[in-house]
Computed example of a mutant assay.
Amino acid sequence: MRGRRRVWTWARRVGLTLLVLVVLVFAVSGAYLGWDRLSPEQLDVAPPGFDVDAAGVRTHVEHWPAVRPSGKAPLVLVPGFAESTYVWSRVAPLLAADRDVYAYDVRGYGFTDRVPPYDLASDTDQLGGLIAALGLERPIVVGHSSGVAIALSLALRAPTSITGVVAANGDGTPYFGTDRTSSGGGARRVLVDPIAPALVTAAMRHRAPIRSIVAAQCGPGCPVDDAAIDRWRAPFLLPGAVDALTSILRQPLIGLTDAQESTVAVPTAILYAGEDGSFTREQAQATAARLRTSLIAELPGARHLALLGEPDRFATALIPLLDGLDRR
């Protein structure tokens, strides 16, 4: 009997301690967010480019005019998850040798307005609106990572509005989830307020965690000096940016189903990196089979952010794919 009381006493103490710790974590997180709002970190990073209204969303755009205009289809570059036009900044000038190149920030990221809902239909609206606002005639859309889903979604919705799609380092499906038969895969993430926003805010206020993530995904050729890391951090330090990111994280990853991809009728091409764990050779080949394309290229030894870390190799592999889409 005495042993049971002793166990019960210890259980109560442990439970009370855990409760106090939980309350403290919530209190500290809330206080940290309050302090951050009163003393926000400000970065002197002026993004190049201009803004347009794309289907009702103020959208940040960068433009690299063709050095030697050739009449080839212009390019529209779509960043992936948590990316901005910065990821295209080193490779875009190489692609602009003979055609106009545009990159834009997808709603919820970069220097574009945070306008929910953050779903594939709205992202597709924005891309279609951007092409119309810029007056582009049947561009080739190059999507990176989750940006592939947006590019292929527009190909399904308005196939005559584009010349083709390149899927770079992503297959356009919810590949981080197990269910590939419904749009948007993977379980919704449990992100508790104010803890999750506080953790994201803390990460963005310091260069070290961002530098570590970028270096791991980009490889040895990636810029990781303070100025480069601040280009990554700056958009997430804007008012409302962390709230938008946590809202996006709570949802399944945007994506098409395998069956939807199999009905894409516009010409497509695949570019993948040999050391990209999120889009492997096997996945690239399966994507090519679904899209019925023979235009596929590998960057051996490259990582997910090869477009930023190895722009010369990325452009060298991508340009023949673009020319192939032009011919088709």
Rank of each mutant, 00 (worst) to 15 (best):
P74T: 15
P74E: 11
P74G: 11
P74H: 12
P74I: 15
L75D: 02
L75C: 03
V76C: 11
V78N: 08
V78T: 15
V78W: 07
P79V: 01
G80E: 12
F81W: 10
F81H: 06
A82I: 01
E83I: 00
E83Y: 05
E83K: 04
T85K: 01
Y86G: 02
Y86S: 02
Y86Q: 06
Y86F: 07
W88L: 03
S89F: 08
S89D: 13
R90Y: 12
R90P: 04
R90G: 01
R90F: 10
V91L: 14
V91H: 11
A92V: 05
P93D: 01
L94C: 05
L94Q: 11
L95Y: 08
L95F: 10
A96F: 09
A96Q: 09
A97Q: 10
A97R: 10
D98F: 07
D98Q: 07
D98P: 03
R99C: 06
D100V: 13
D100P: 07
D100C: 09
V101D: 10
Y102P: 02
A103G: 00
Y104C: 03
Y104R: 00
D105T: 02
D105K: 00
D105I: 05
V106R: 15
V106W: 06
R107M: 11
R107I: 15
Y109K: 07
Y109I: 05
G110S: 09
G110F: 07
F111L: 12
F111S: 07
T112S: 15
T112M: 14
R114D: 03
V115E: 14
V115S: 15
P116Y: 09
P116N: 14
P117M: 04
P117Y: 01
P117T: 02
Y118M: 01
Y118S: 02
D119G: 12
D119Y: 02
L120F: 10
L120I: 09
L120Y: 13
L120A: 14
A121M: 04
A121V: 07
A121I: 06
S122G: 05
S122R: 01
D123E: 15
T124P: 14
D125P: 08
L127M: 06
L130R: 09
A132D: 13
A132V: 11
A133K: 10
A133Y: 13
A133G: 13
A133V: 12
L134A: 14
